[in-house]
């Protein structure tokens, strides 16, 4: 895997994350589950920002950024099932964190700062989505 491959993998994950997290947010009541709603909103905003950053980095590397797919499989969540929504959002966050780990591993030291920041940011967001501390988030 090259640096650009790792960027593209992270970007592909962001496209999927935005689709899924957006769906999960639409399944969540702001009044009934305000903390989860806020966590999903923050997650969506963070992934959108990261997606835009990755598009720029891929372009800077002289490659064509991978496009979003037309659709992605969505998790099964029942109406008002905040626990299921949070679990699905946490799975998305952990998946993205793993791609950030790829990004770190395949970047030269001078290119690594945004990737390390992404790993740390994602690890903190895991907790907001109900995750428990882990020894190696992003690996």
């Amino acid at each position: 895997m090259t640096y650009v491959d790792a960027l593209q993998a992270a970007l592909a994950a962001e496209h999927a994350a935005l689709f899924v997290v957006g769906y999960l947010g639409a399944q969540t009541s702001e009044s009934a589950s305000p903390d989860l709603y806020d966590a999903l909103q923050e997650s969506y905003d963070a992934h959108r920002t990261r997606r835009d950053q990755l598009v720029g980095l891929v372009e800077d590397a002289g490659a064509e950024p991978v496009a979003a797919a037309p659709s992605y499989a969505l998790p099964q969540v029942g109406p008002g099932a905040a626990g299921q929504v949070a679990a699905a959002a946490l799975a998305v966050e952990r998946a993205c964190g793993a791609t950030y780990g790829f990004w770190v591993a395949n970047a030269a030291p001078a290119q690594r700062r945004p990737a390390v920041a992404a790993v740390l940011d994602s690890a903190r967001r895991e907790l907001a989505l109900g995750g428990e501390p882990r020894a190696y988030p992003g690996r």
């Binding site: 964190g97 780990g101 790829f102 770190v104 591993a105 395949n106 970047a107 030291p109 690594r112 700062r113 990737a115 390390v116 790993v119 740390l120 994602s122 690890a123 903190r124 895991e126 907790l127 995750g131 501390p133 882990r134 020894a135 190696y136 988030p137 992003g138 690996r139």
Partner: peptide, 25 residues
């Protein structure tokens, strides 16, 4: 993690930093 010559080591160190950040909360 920013300094490591090895990418694999960098990934591990970044994951360690993230795990430390999580548990500190």
């Amino acid at each position: 993690a920013l300094e490591a010559a090895s990418g694999a080591l960098a990934q591990t160190l970044a994951a360690m930093a993230a795990g430390t950040a999580q548990l500190r909360t």
